[in-house]
Amino acid sequence: MSTLIDEIKTLIIETLNLEDVTVDDIDPDAPLFVEGLGLDSIDALELGVALHKRYGLAPSEDAEEAKQYFASVRRLADYVAAHRNH
């Protein structure tokens, strides 16, 4: 799982052009949005597209569910591990 966590951190850094942020800078349990990394709603959309391309995840129709798995890198890794198609 730690490999997947690092993979997702790298995906976030590359997809969102997070200059000066390294894999080690991202706390896997810190919030991704608003607090913590400070990402915004456009970043959420961007990540959704990237997750679809990389892992074949369908964008969630359920906003509450999306909130849950976008809460932190660890939650996102759990979700990817359970739902990935490739």
Partner: peptide, 9 residues
């Protein structure tokens, strides 16, 4: 068939 929301915005 899918564009980057970030780039679009």
């Amino acid at each position: 068939g899918r564009v980057s929301p970030q780039e679009f915005s």
